[in-house]
Design a protein around this nucleic acid. Structure first.
Lengths: 219, 219, 219, 219
DNA sequence: CATGAATGAGCTTTCATTCAT
DNA sequence: AATGAATGAAAGCTCATTCAT
């Protein structure tokens, strides 16, 4: 898992296209995360990337395209981090538990990227918002699949139209918990994952009775 | 519960101050909800309100102030709708169930207002955004109190530092579920509330075993 | 000589036209003097005059007309204060000495009015500036006449085309001296008049030799 | 001494920064002088400078900053033109005479600049107006120093608190005389300087007796 | 007569975007 | 390939001015 991008961007010319693009994307993600889409200026992005504006446009297009590119990359990272394939050989609960851990770990290492993905409600109105929320759909699909797997041995396995809203709600709960985490940074990623797991798997009904969920192998 | 504001704004001049103010707020909420804060133009708001721009500024100040005023009003509506006082005489589960129903009902009737409150992550950078997220804090507090009440008879009642993240996650789950609802509008408010209640109270652990939560009195 | 206008403007209706106009002019002079022509707003003038804006316009017309009216009134006061007729029976020097005293006395009692007359260089560009500087012309004429009188007994009395620039310079010197006075308010009007008289009548040539001018009758 | 900036501004693109800046300042001085600060529009300045508005702002900042820049440049020109150091080896009278000539010469060649410096009484209210009147202070200081020098050999040399108001009055007289000159442009700069010198050095007392002041070496 | 309520018109300012070197 | 220099277009805001009561 790659840690937060470094700040050292030596001003060097004649770089291969791939490197340049990465340099630009890093800068753009940083600036977009800091100021938000609208308050981010192309000037600042160019300066942060140590590149001139015409180059900025030549490489990654206009502001909205650049933003999309950022979102796409960060979303890919997130999806890759938590995995999207259902693994056999683990119970759904354990799989979920693993993913949650990976998710919070990802957030811890990619704060800027996460902010980009999470806080972009205001870009609504534009048509291209599809890419903006696609990662949510991917995550939701994963959860949906897990739930389906969890119930597939029952006589009435849950159908997607039942599990999907649950999955969506789960994702929302995770996002909200991250916000809470940012305000209480003393907690560990694993602790956060455990909290969410407790809530999701047990539900309040059992939580209030004092029960708690444990990963397999714990006492 | 008041239904969505109508679109009929008769172009009548010389209205009393109070009426005009409401007219303007209605228009502003509509436009802000449609385009987001940054893409909303004062021109369009003025036109939607059937008013000239100077009046717009005279009544509710600059763009950010106007936006704050909108948020304040809509947040008040939401808080008022779901109530914030803990009622005695009902079990926490029933109270939560009631609030969830009220919440989804509110969303159904105040789509624009809800969008205003929900999709504004990008306004970061401005200092006065406090009002924007305050309603979340209020809602979280309510849930926290409910959870505390639910466990107060136990030997180890849950402390705020335990319940608060759960409450935050719950609110997030609700918000996400609303988004899903917007894409599947065939469902009723009560149905959505029931989904969320099931998830929250039972948790996946029981859900996947086929259990479901019922309001008291149902079979 | 009337002292600075008082601030008490009781809000009363149905006043005779003349009183209202005076009320308005008082307010307008005050506001114009405080903020300058462009920064003075009709709103503030109306409020200061305890009158509504439509009345303001009804009585004294648009902003520029109102300003002209103010200038006209204050200029009249100034001209009346220092007199404009050449008196016989006094030497020109004594006459000048008297006028200078009256002038500084006028400034002391009519600060706002004076500011209006003096600091309006920026209103250039407008066509109606004639009224703005007419008082200067009147004052200059007076001085010119005095100089003419002073030299009429000589074989080569000074002609207007010679005396006029001197008169204009004198007026300018007076204006500048008033500015200096405002920054050194500890001096009396008579002291200022004496300073100017010394400079004008003796000139530096004699001043630097230690001579001073005295009004007739002094030692 | 450089003559009035010419009007020929060839519409050429991609000029080096320094040239553009001068081009803009020339245009701004022209427009500010013609319309005054408030009536001058950034549009007109941009058009006069054959430049687009964004460039205008990029080079010299907002309207007030641009204005300050103009004033600064023109004030520097004026101060440089008349010199501000007291020269030894010349009598104070001769020094004054020289400066007056230089002053009127400056005015003749820099009408716009002079208007900028002279007619801006109305910019009061803004805080940064310090620069606007600083040149007057410099000029006053110069005169004050000259007077001090003129009397330093006497048993009772004049103190600054005595000479300063005279100096201020002198400057005011000069300004007023320039206004008169603008209405009688048939006179030469030297003639104007001589008029002022006569008034200042001899005073009316001697002027009315038919005396006149001559530069050293004249008959 | 007197006014609260309303507006046309214009200003300054700032972007994202692209020539021309 | 790479950039300093340049701009079209639009936004927010305010003011003198006037209906309509």
């Amino acid at each position: 898992m790659v840690d937060q991008r470094e700040d050292e961007r030596p001003r060097s010319r004649r770089l291969p296209r791939e490197v340049r693009e990465r340099q630009i994307l890093d800068a753009a993600v940083e600036v977009f995360a800091k100021h938000g889409y609208y308050n981010a200026s192309m000037d600042e992005i160019a300066e942060t990337a140590s590149i001139s504006k015409p180059m900025l446009y030549a490489y990654l297009g206009a502001k909205d395209e650049l933003f999309i590119a950022c979102v796409r990359r960060e979303a890919a990272r997130l999806v890759e981090a938590i995995g999207v394939e259902v693994e056999s050989g683990l119970t759904p609960a354990d799989q979920l538990w693993n993913r949650l851990q990976l998710f919070f770990e990802y957030v811890r290492c990619n704060k800027d990227g996460w902010r980009l993905l999470h806080r972009q409600g205001d870009v609504s109105g534009e048509p291209q918002v599809v890419e903006l929320t696609e990662w949510r759909d991917r995550a939701t699909e994963l959860i949906t699949a897990l739930l389906a797997q969890a119930t597939e041995d029952q006589k009435q396995p849950m159908q997607p139209e039942q599990t999907e809203p649950f999955a969506a709600a789960l994702v929302g709960a995770g996002e909200a918990l991250v916000e809470w985490w940012f305000q209480h940074p003393e907690h560990t990623a694993e602790g956060m994952a455990r909290r969410l797991m407790n809530l999701l798997w047990l539900g309040f009904g059992e939580l209030v009775e004092g029960k708690t969920w444990h990963p397999q192998g714990e006492a």
